[in-house]
Amino acid sequence: MGSARALAEPRAPVLGPVTADDVRTSGLAGEDLRRAVRAGAFVRVRHGAYVPAATWESADRAERHRLLVRAAARSLAAPVFGYESAAAMWRLPLLEGWPSDVQVLVLDARGTPSTRGVRRHRLATLPDVRAVDGVTVTTLARTVVDLSRTGSFARGLALADDALHRHRVDPDDLARELAAAGSGRGVRAARRVLAEADAGAESPGESLSRARMIELDLPRASLQREVRDSSGLVGRVDFLWEELGVVGEFDGRLKYRVDGVGDRATVEDRVWAEKRREDRIRATGLRVVRWTWRDALDAGRLARVLATAGVRPAP
């Protein structure tokens, strides 16, 4: 039992996948790992790969997919990960959820079929790659274009906005990847995504909202604009329809969370500060409309919310 306890209570935290080889290298036996799994200290995430239960239970869906990718990278022969798996390693947002299979690119000539837990995408030539946390993945630009060709407009826009805003991807790199795709499946959809992508969008919720507005043919808003009054800067707003005199704010609620925030303001203090800010915006003559994830996920619902502030499709 002592050796099993050594796995269950390691001296240093184990954050990544553990294999039977790791256990043997540490001087323990495979049975020790199995005992640790039965004891609930480890979780089997794929054949031959295990993750500390505490790590798995505390991980969100994106992090769990990263753990699956890292586990697969240790067991497959020189894998190149693409699509959602590359997005996970680049820490891009994925609105439509993460697959249970890792996504691997292989040369068509190899003809290796997909297997349980691994979906293989056959290509005539492998694309440019980068190493992220020791895992070989498609470039950021290629990842965005690939996923923009295969998913919804909203998913693609959230990916492209994030790549431009947070990762500072060069738009020319995106354009080159799109051109390299020729006239293949989904290229028209990806072209629309890249035409609308904007580095001004600062969160997936804002990107989703923008996608809905475009799909609803609503007037275009300026992003992250400053609002000032006689006392100076009131703040930056998510959306501004200047000609309509309307400010739009996506309320993801995360702004009210205290955990992980550097200052010690209470939630009540934050809500009160937000109310005072909104009152100052209204005092300038602007109307303010707010919406949530629930609204943005439903195009009809968001249309109704925005219509209350006078943001409607042009006649």
Results as ranks from 00 to 15, higher is better:
Asp128Tyr: 08
Leu94Asp: 00
Val145Phe: 01
Ser85Gly: 02
Met213Leu: 11
Ser222Thr: 12
Val43Cys: 10
Arg46Leu: 09
Arg168Gln: 15
Ala211Ser: 15
Asp133Asn: 10
Ala41Pro: 06
Asp217Lys: 08
Ser26Val: 14
Leu15Cys: 13
Arg280Lys: 06
Val132Lys: 02
Ser231Glu: 12
Arg116Ile: 01
Met1Thr: 12
Leu159Val: 08
Gly27Ile: 14
Pro17Cys: 12
Arg312Val: 15
Leu28His: 11
Asp161Arg: 07
Thr55Gln: 11
Arg149Val: 09
Arg91Trp: 08
Glu268Met: 04
Ala53Ser: 15
Leu33Ile: 14
Ser114Pro: 00
Arg228Ile: 00
Leu94Tyr: 07
Pro52Ile: 06
Lys275Ser: 05
Ala309Trp: 08
Arg257His: 14
Ala199Met: 08
Ala309His: 11
Pro10Arg: 11
Leu194Tyr: 13
Ala62Glu: 13
Pro313Cys: 06
Tyr50Glu: 04
Arg155Trp: 12
Val258Trp: 09
Gly205Asn: 04
Phe153Trp: 13
Met1Pro: 08
Glu96His: 04
Leu194Met: 15
Ser114Tyr: 01
Leu174Cys: 10
Thr139Val: 09
Leu92Val: 07
Ala41Gly: 10
Gly252Val: 13
Pro17Gly: 14
Leu306Ser: 07
Thr308Pro: 00
Val227Ser: 01
Arg34Ile: 01
Ala141His: 13
Pro93Trp: 08
Ala124Gly: 09
Leu94Asn: 01
Glu249Asp: 11
Gly235Met: 00
Leu140Gly: 08
Phe42Asn: 09
Gly252Glu: 13
Ala283Ile: 04
Arg46Phe: 03
Ser75Arg: 14
Leu208His: 05
Thr25Phe: 11
Asp32Ser: 15
Pro171Gly: 03
Val69Asn: 01
Gly262Arg: 15
Arg116Gly: 06
Val247Pro: 03
Ala54Gly: 02
Val311Ala: 07
Ala299Gln: 12
Thr143Ile: 07
Asp263Thr: 14
Gly156Asp: 03
Trp241Thr: 06
Arg276Pro: 00
Arg11Pro: 11
Glu226Thr: 07
Ala160Leu: 10
Pro204Trp: 01
Arg282Val: 15
Ala307Thr: 03
Glu242Pro: 11
Arg64Ile: 02
Val132Tyr: 02
Leu302Cys: 02
Ser231Met: 00
Ala36Val: 08
Asp101Cys: 06
Gly2Asn: 13
Arg212Asn: 01
Trp56His: 10
Val135Gln: 03
Ser183Trp: 04
Phe250Gln: 05
Pro313Gly: 08
Leu233Met: 10
Ala303Arg: 15
Ala190Pro: 09
Gly2Val: 15
Ala299His: 10
Gly111Asp: 04
Val45Ser: 04
Ala109Asp: 08
Val261Pro: 01
Ala211Asn: 06
Ala6Trp: 12
Gly245Leu: 07
Asp108Ile: 00
